[in-house]
Each structure stands twice: as structure tokens, then as C-alpha cells.
Simulated scan of single mutants.
Amino acid sequence: MFRATAGVVGLLGALAMVPPASAEDNAQYSVLIISRERLEVATSCEIGVYLNDQLSGRVFQEQSTSFNLPPGPVDVRLRLLPGQAPGCGAGVEDQRSTRLVLHAGQINKYRIALGQNGLQLKRADLGY
């Protein structure tokens, strides 16, 4: 009986040390949405989204992906990824990235478009 009581008291003490979750902490992050909803990129290949040169997401036609990121600069690069569809093999591509400066509490939406130098990001309206 003593062991059970000591265990419950110890568990309650451990729970008291854990800080409570708070919705206020969401203001410390920025939301980055990258959309491929329009048919501006006429390929069935998936597009890889690289954040600071690390593959962070994959976007297919008519999809979008979002990231909760800390405020500050982030380098975003888009790349066609090899996949199941024919013609999606790796090839020579533009290695340039777009530097975005994110601010705390801000929602940023960009759409993927095909530009003069390959895939690029264009600012988009949030739509709500």
C-alpha cells in the first residue's frame, strides 16, 4: 500500500514539473504554405521542397504543403523528384534557392510556377 501511495505522489510531482501547453507559443512561429493547386507546372512529377538544402516536403498536382517555422531567413529550393511517372528522372537543373524572411505570427502562402530559370515561387493570396 505504501509503494502505491509513494508511486502516485511521485507521478503527481513529476507532472507538476512539466510546463503546460499554451496556444500563445504559436505566435513565435511563422507558417509557410507552398501550393501547387494551379496547373502552372505541366508535369505529373512530384516536386520536392527543400528548406535550407534539406528535403522537407513533396508536392503533387493540386496539393499544398505547410510548415511551422521559426522567424528569420529560410532558403527554399524546388526540384523535380524522380518518381513512378515516366520522364521524372534526375537531370541538370537550376540549383538556386529563394530566400524568404519569415516573421513571427505571419502566414505566408506561395504557389509553384514555371519561370524562365525553372521552378519558382510566386506569392499567393491566402483565400480566406
Rank of each mutant, 00 (worst) to 15 (best):
M1W: 06
M1H: 04
M1Q: 03
F2V: 14
R3S: 12
A4E: 09
A4N: 07
T5F: 13
V8K: 11
V9H: 05
G10S: 12
G10T: 13
G10P: 04
G10M: 12
G10Q: 13
L11W: 13
L11Q: 08
L11Y: 11
G13S: 05
A14V: 14
L15N: 12
M17N: 01
P19I: 00
A21N: 10
A23F: 14
A23Q: 15
A23M: 15
D25Q: 10
D25V: 12
N26C: 04
A27D: 06
Q28E: 11
Q28D: 14
Y29R: 02
S30N: 04
S30E: 04
V31C: 09
L32Y: 09
I34A: 04
I34L: 07
I34Q: 06
S35W: 05
E37F: 07
E37N: 08
E37Y: 08
R38D: 11
L39N: 03
V41P: 13
V41C: 10
V41D: 11
A42L: 13
T43Y: 08
T43W: 13
S44F: 13
S44H: 10
S44A: 14
S44I: 12
S44N: 14
C45W: 06
E46S: 08
E46G: 08
G48F: 00
V49I: 10
V49M: 04
Y50N: 09
L51A: 14
L51C: 12
N52D: 09
N52F: 03
Q54V: 01
L55D: 08
S56P: 07
S56E: 10
S56F: 04
G57F: 05
V59R: 05
F60E: 07
Q61L: 09
E62R: 04
S64W: 11
S66E: 15
F67N: 00
F67A: 01
N68Q: 15
N68C: 12
P70S: 12
P70N: 13
G72A: 06
G72C: 09
P73V: 09
D75G: 08
D75F: 05
V76G: 15
R77M: 01
L78T: 02
L78M: 01
L78D: 02
R79L: 01
R79K: 07
L80H: 09
G83E: 07
Q84V: 15
Q84E: 15
A85E: 08
A85P: 03
A85W: 07
G87P: 00
C88L: 15
G89Y: 09
A90W: 06
G91S: 14
G91A: 14
V92G: 09
V92T: 11
E93T: 03
D94W: 08
Q95I: 00
Q95V: 00
S97E: 15
S97C: 11
T98A: 12
T98M: 11
T98Q: 14
R99K: 05
R99L: 03
L100R: 01
L100P: 01
L102V: 00
L102G: 02
H103M: 06
H103Y: 05
A104W: 03
A104S: 06
A104H: 01
I107N: 15
I107G: 15
I107E: 15
N108Y: 13
N108S: 13
R111L: 07
R111H: 09
R111G: 12
I112G: 09
A113D: 02
A113L: 03
A113C: 04
A113N: 00
L114C: 02
L114N: 02
G115Y: 05
N117Q: 13
G118A: 03
G118V: 02
G118F: 03
L119T: 00
L119R: 02
Q120F: 01
Q120L: 04
L121K: 02
L121E: 02
